[in-house]
Design a protein around this nucleic acid. Structure first.
Lengths: 198, 198
DNA sequence: AAAAAACCTTGTCTTAGGTTAAGAAAAGCC
DNA sequence: GGCTTTTCTTAACCTAAGACAAGGTTTTTT
């Protein structure tokens, strides 16, 4: 597997020595995930942080009616985990499933904890990752509280242009918080608005 | 001002030497905030992380109709900031306002950045704070996507029993994502359910 | 202790978005 | 390439929650 992507990802926030790089890489477990394969299910403990080298995963919950609610997409160059479960090492309620056949690298909780002690720079790296993720979750929450569905969709398009083109509409609908049927109706309006300009 | 509360807050995640404690305290600017006073407004850059020693602040946005949407409450022993603006040092869209007369300690972005270099342990501290905050924001987001208003209210009560008793209903309504009018109607149901048991 | 300002409730009417159902179009699979 | 499965769309009907309006209560302020 090609590990240059993850080194680049980390290099955006911290500089590692060759030794540190080697040590870090030695902790990563490569894994191939088939389309529709789940790497985590509700009720399980999330033992790994997963970095996507190729393909795309998503995380979601099922509500009491069996309806899926997408929490996040993880295309190439993204991290994904059930963070509640990963940090607490208790059973979580997320499913993490491959949207298409994917290649990932996994870092176990134990190794990550040890890594903080061995290479303290990683405290900084994951602090920054958490900060960025928190900011975007806060923004998404406020969008959900304050904007009607069509504007939430427009924001999604602006923020994740790549995902709009590649993810099933059903899942995008779920991500922004509407049913696929309503999403479908809404798209007619959105498209009309786009042709109209601005 | 009594700084033992913030040392205790930090002591939950990292151990500081007396020198480090003294250095950290020297960076904090104490401030009294009057009821209804805003320490941050839309369009301003958020220069400080604010720790609440006494009283309570809240952060919110105003939508295009002038309706308030509460992002967070910060009672005693909590941190608050417009994180997007604080991290990026660009104008944000949050208001941060005192719900009652409060005493706070403020740490500037510049000092916080320097602190990471002087006392790297703080990387760990803020990483953990961010992790916890991210987990609770993800949970809240999923609640908003998957649960009807009365259950979101019940979750709010379980998670923040103190706030339920002390914050205006209007603001709680806004936090869980309903209008005060609907909240009022809903409460009758919720109360009936409580008397009924379970 | 009054006056002013918020806050909370209740009622009626409206609407954004959900539900159900059923067919059309894609995408994955052997 | 044909078969299966999933996804997308459309349409009719339904409901949780919003908007507006108006009166009552509590909290602040002076």
């Amino acid at each position: 597997m090609d590990t240059s992507l993850i080194l680049q990802n980390i290099g955006r926030h911290i500089q590692l020595t060759p030794d540190e790089e080697a040590h870090f890489l030695s902790l990563l477990k490569p894994r191939r995930v088939k389309r529709k394969e789940m790497i985590l299910q509700e009720g399980e403990v999330c033992h790994y942080s997963t970095f996507v080298l190729e393909g795309c995963l998503r995380s979601y919950t099922l509500d009491k009616n069996g309806v899926e609610h997408v929490l996040s997409f993880a295309p190439e160059d993204w991290w994904i985990a059930d963070l509640y479960s990963f940090f607490s090492q208790r059973p979580g309620n997320l499913y993490i499933e491959a949207n298409k056949a994917s290649e990932v690298l996994q870092l176990s909780k134990t190794d990550q904890d040890q890594l903080y002690l061995d290479v303290p720079k990683f405290e900084r790296f994951f602090r920054i990752i958490m900060e960025n993720s928190l900011v975007s979750h806060q923004q998404r929450l406020l969008d959900n509280l304050s904007l009607p569905a069509p504007e939430r969709y427009r924001n999604f398009c602006r923020r994740y242009p790549t995902l709009v083109a590649t993810m099933p509409r059903k899942q995008i609908a779920s991500y922004i918080g509407v049913t696929p049927e309503f999403f479908s109706k809404m798209m007619k309006e959105v498209l009309r608005g786009e042709r109209g300009g601005a």
